[in-house]
Write a protein that binds this DNA or RNA. Structure first.
Lengths: 214, 214
DNA sequence: TTAAAAAAGGGGAAAATAGCCCTTTTAATA
DNA sequence: TATTAAAAGGGCTATTTTCCCCTTTTTTAA
């Protein structure tokens, strides 16, 4: 019986190695490739012998899971990949699924369910857990209007960055060569767009989404 | 040859199971006990047959690694335990080592080094990695700077955390069962202490100094 | 035990922030 | 070119934040 081949792309060596042991203990699977980031994964790929499933961690140095998924979509659109992450933020999940991930597993999943997930992806082409589905439903409720993700314009981003400092809006207006009233417009429109109710909310959003470095 | 026994205490089932596979593949070690939190670990312990090493995750529901370590120190002071965590915050490391952990491993450690660490703990009684040592040195530097200034009291920290949300001060006062005027006192005193001029400054300070997780 | 300090609370006012509805200017494109 | 959408700006008001100076209560330490 031919075993299905799995590639493990994860920078947490201990986890990756351990996961490999586990997968190799399954009857129908074995790990044929291991890389610590997307870049190394791509370099190690043999175009003529692609793995049946790629297990892709999201947070990795150099080339992360999202970038790797983008590359896969571009270069090997038929490649099956499952995102495997600690990160259950809606935004990340959506990004990965949009890019064609066949499933999104949280790292605290039970080993038996993990094996089921592999089976499902091989047999049915996808695996979506309850938890991920619920996360998505939450997201739909929260922001059904911006279904292509929140795109901030350059000028808005500039304002957001300044709003994340101790400057008053008046000072920000001077800095941006705009009237305080215009700044007030940016503020209102961002409050609406980002679903926050105070400047603190802007700051938290800015930091969470890496518009400002700490 | 007798194998050394290892207990794995970790709520991330997939990781725990995988790690078990890995350890069982080592010549000198095998996993004899697995629990998903400290409570279950303690219940499962056989007083007459303690494991040679306990691998203890920090972040777990119900009873976390620190609490479990406290219990071990109290009840089995000779028990060897290694903290195993994603969390490389100085505070946590220090807490665990003070409680008698024989080592502190980050989950992205290399499998070979992991085996070495187990060997060291068995043979020498401890294992400290470069990275952890450096973290501790960093902390010593920081503490020295803090000495003539910034150490926040519990109640101040509680306030700071709430100030880093979209709550108004009035709402924070209600949350902390204090008068808004008292909250105003905390605010003024923190502004002074942290050298900031607006609530935004508090938020930035709180995030920079990891009083709140993002 | 008593003095000092820290924590809790208050009055009042100026500045900043937030919410709503509106007009003018500029840019985009059909 | 005419139409439209977006960007910039204004007026007004309510709430929140910030600041300064003050009293009472509780803890801490000499």
């Amino acid at each position: 019986m031919k075993k299905y081949s799995i590639a493990v792309v994860d920078d947490h060596s201990l986890f990756a190695k351990s996961l490999t042991s586990l997968i190799d203990s399954f009857n129908e699977y074995h790990v044929t490739l291991h890389a610590t980031n997307g870049q190394k994964f791509i370099e190690a790929l043999n175009e003529n012998d692609m793995p049946d499933i790629v297990l892709l961690d999201i947070n990795m140095p150099i080339m992360n899971g999202i970038e790797t998924m983008e590359w896969l979509k571009e270069n090997h659109p038929a490649q099956k990949a499952i995102a495997l992450s600690m990160d259950d933020s809606e935004e990340t999940i959506i990004k990965m699924l949009r890019l064609g991930a066949k499933g999104y597993l949280l790292k605290d999943i039970h080993p038996e369910i993990f094996e089921n997930a592999l089976n499902d992806v091989i047999e049915k082409g996808f695996y979506y857990s309850d938890r991920i589905t619920n996360k998505l439903l939450d997201t739909i409720d929260k922001k059904q209007n911006d279904d292509h993700g929140i795109q901030l314009k350059d000028r808005e981003i500039e304002f957001l960055k300044l709003a994340c400092t101790e400057m008053t809006y008046k000072e920000i207006a001077a800095e941006m060569f705009l009237s305080p009233k215009t700044i007030d417009g940016y503020r209102e429109s961002l409050f609406e767009k980002l679903d926050v109710r105070s400047r603190i909310g802007l700051v938290l959003y800015g930091i969470k989404n890496k518009y400002i470095e700490m």
